[in-house]
């Protein structure tokens, strides 16, 4: 069972990195909109896991995407940040429920799942564009990019999670 979960996460890691660098980094919709779908890794990752392993994995995920897109360590910083903030976010979105052993992401309502995903993406993009643009003079540009690219990321992530939903009915 443990091996199965590790295997699924390794495959997910590789496929999301490849999808990100080979497809989504090349979209350049309207010149600059490149949705970041690899954030889904943090959305799908098992809820009850060792936090240290999780943060390390997310840092590596960001770093891998960075190496491929020559944006050294911007993705890594943003991803490590949301990895660190994930438990407080989950407590905020799902309430005390999520502390229970039996809680699964699929048990949450659609609205809760959406809020969780949106919060992850908005924080990630805010950190990402702040570091990428690297000056607070351009704060409006940072906010604009966060809003526009964030919206496209949320839409694509929702489509992806609907496509690869693990729900058995």
């Amino acid at each position: 069972m443990i091996n199965n979960s590790v295997f699924i996460n390794v495959v997910r890691f590789l496929l999301l990195v490849l999808a990100q660098v080979l497809i989504f980094n090349k979209l350049n919709f309207f010149g600059y909109i490149n949705p970041m779908v690899y954030v889904l890794f943090l959305f799908w990752y098992p809820l009850k896991e060792n936090r240290a392993t999780f943060i390390t994995l997310c840092f590596l995920l960001g770093l891998t995407v960075d190496i491929f897109s020559d944006t050294l360590a911007i993705n890594a910083a943003a991803t490590a940040t949301i990895a660190y903030l994930r438990p407080p976010l989950m407590r905020f979105v799902f309430g005390v429920n999520y502390e229970f052993q039996s809680f699964r992401l699929n048990n949450a309502t659609k609205a809760q799942q959406f809020t969780f995903l949106a919060l992850l993406i908005v924080i990630h993009h805010l950190a990402f564009f702040t570091l990428e643009i690297f000056s607070f003079v351009n704060i409006l540009l940072i906010l604009k990019k966060t809003l526009v690219v964030g919206t496209s990321s949320i839409i694509l992530c929702l489509l992806f999670s609907a496509l690869f939903s693990t729900k058995k009915e």
Partner: peptide, 16 residues
């Protein structure tokens, strides 16, 4: 966990 996060953050900021 917080320290680990700061460790990664500092590495990535240094690289940036």
């Amino acid at each position: 966990i917080l320290l680990l996060y700061f460790f990664f953050l500092i590495i990535s900021l240094a690289l940036t």
